[in-house]
């Protein structure tokens, strides 16, 4: 039994994983629906929607799976998401036509998980990567000093 490891961040991490999983499900469901029903309408936006869904799934897996490689993949995917929500969020508000969108309504039919910085998803897509990075950073110090971390 190793007692130096505070159970709390690990627990919060679990919550993070669940929210990621729900967001992955939401993004996958929505993009699948958009691509099946009206891909021609805004191919670029809907492709990005699908890409974000894949990245969310990958991030969820990377947060769960142990090991250095997955830890690195978690950093990459979460950084990508933050970049995505900032860049696509900005474009979706300032120049929606660049994405082939005729509407900037974050709750509308053309909305993606990143539209208007994820406003249609209660800004969770904007906040989550930051929390994810904080958690990854904290976990690094724990994982680095105690090799037996997984022995709970």
């Amino acid at each position: 039994m190793v007692h130096e490891i505070p159970p709390r961040p690990l627990g919060v991490g679990r919550l993070l994983i669940v929210v990621y999983a729900i967001l992955a499900l939401a993004a996958t469901g929505r993009s699948a629906f958009q691509i099946i029903s009206r891909f021609d309408e805004a191919p670029l936006a809907y492709s990005l929607s699908a890409l974000s869904a894949i990245v969310y799934i990958l991030a969820t897996v990377a947060l769960i799976a142990p090991g250095r490689t997955w830890y690195r993949i978690a950093w990459i995917t979460i950084s990508f998401e933050l970049l995505g929500v900032l860049v696509i969020g900005t474009i979706s508000v300032t120049a929606p036509s660049l994405l082939g969108l005729s509407s900037i309504d974050p709750f509308g039919k053309q909305a993606t998980v990143w539209s208007a910085y994820g406003l249609g998803y209660l800004l969770i897509p904007l906040v989550l990567p930051v929390l994810g990075m904080l958690w990854l950073y904290r976990r690094r110090s724990v994982a680095g000093s105690v090799a037996t971390r997984s022995v709970a």
């Binding site: 159970p7 627990g11 919060v12 679990r14 919550l15 669940v18 929210v19 999983a21 729900i22 499900l25």
Partner: peptide, 24 residues
């Protein structure tokens, strides 16, 4: 979603699983 959260709460017995049920 909710069976997944319930399943999780059966595997992992801590307070966060209760929070997860709520989030679900």
């Amino acid at each position: 979603i909710s069976p997944a959260a319930a399943f999780w709460s059966l595997i992992e017995r801590n307070r966060w699983s209760t929070v997860i049920l709520g989030v679900a």
